[in-house]
């Protein structure tokens, strides 16, 4: 997608250069039409699919007369959500707080460590495999251990969300810092540029699209992680709401808290995407998600 659109731009600018037209960023009308059409399809088709799924869900529940404690209809879930908005919000706040704190700490550590790894080959060889192994431990297995050793407080939850936020960003940043054009490294070398200058002016900006790919993953993962930790051992938060409403057979509230968690994940993802769009303007064509 990226290479395709890049090719289109190159082609069209070459046309302008040859014709010596004043505007250097000329795009043929047919190309822009096609782009508009594909943007429509891009948004419209998934929206229709989602609407269909919700519609048929509602229809099945109503037509078969399913009990709400078994599976509530979308309308009932929406009603429960609005009715319990205050409770949901009160429980969402601690989830947001711990997700954001863990997200910040985990990502900061990942970025610093990746910069160290790129500059010290031996450190990379020593610690990178360990990081990969640690990543393979499932969170649900790690959470009880953290609760036993650190307790059920805020610290445990932050540690868990930080761990979740750490690895995807580390891996992406390593790839990003290594992704620089070899010619550019030679160019910097040919004027005996300092390593700090290579990092600041070359490696760091080159890595930004990769960093944001990592941030997009960890933004949603940190919310999911926070919910799981609350679910395993908590007295408040969306995860606690999930487990509590399950115990109380309050299935509509269970679904409503599920919707709230999902909205939170989407919001986190959206915020990072907006930041990406604003801060990495040269990479706007590739809005693909790397997982």
């Amino acid at each position: 997608m990226k290479s395709l659109s890049a090719k289109v731009t190159t082609l069209s600018t070459e046309v302008t250069e040859a014709a010596a037209a004043p505007s250097p960023t000329f795009v043929s009308p047919r190309a822009s039409d096609r782009r508009r059409a594909s943007t429509m399809a891009h948004w419209l088709i998934p929206a229709v699919v989602i609407a269909c799924v919700i519609g048929s869900w509602q229809a099945v529940v109503v037509l078969l007369g399913l009990k709400s404690y078994f599976i509530p209809s979308p309308a009932l879930i929406a009603e429960t959500f609005v009715h319990n908005a205050r409770t949901i919000w009160d429980n969402a706040v601690p989830t947001i707080e711990q997700a954001m704190t863990g997200f910040a700490i985990g990502n900061l550590l990942a970025v610093l460590l990746s910069i160290w790894f790129v500059h010290a080959r031996s450190a990379r060889r020593a610690f990178y495999p360990l990081a990969i192994i640690l990543q393979s431990i499932p969170l649900v297995a790690l959470a009880p251990i953290a609760i036993v050793t650190i307790g059920t407080g805020f610290a445990t939850k932050v540690v868990m969300t930080a761990i979740i936020s750490f690895f995807p960003t580390l891996v992406n940043m390593m790839r990003g810092l290594d992704s620089v054009d070899p010619s550019l490294v030679e160019l910097f070398k040919s004027v005996d540029a300092k390593r700090s200058a290579v990092l600041r002016k070359l490696r760091w900006p080159s890595a930004l699209p990769y960093l944001f790919a990592g941030l997009r993953i960890t933004a949603s993962a940190s919310v999911i992680g926070a919910v799981i930790v609350e679910w395993i051992g908590g007295t408040q938060g969306l995860g606690y709401m999930v487990i509590n409403s399950t115990y109380q057979f309050n299935t509509p509230l269970l679904w409503a808290s599920l919707v709230a968690s999902s909205l939170l994940v989407l919001a986190a993802f959206g915020l990072v995407s907006v930041a990406d769009w604003l801060l990495v303007p040269w990479n706007r064509t590739s809005s693909t998600v790397e997982v």
Binding site: D181, S183, L184, E186, V191, D192, P205, L208, V280, W282
Partner: peptide, 17 residues
């Protein structure tokens, strides 16, 4: 160190940002 070299590559290798 005396900045005597100018290097031009096959790909322009410009910084896209």
């Amino acid at each position: 160190r005396a900045h005597r070299f100018g290097f031009v590559f096959q790909d322009a290798a410009l910084l896209p940002w």
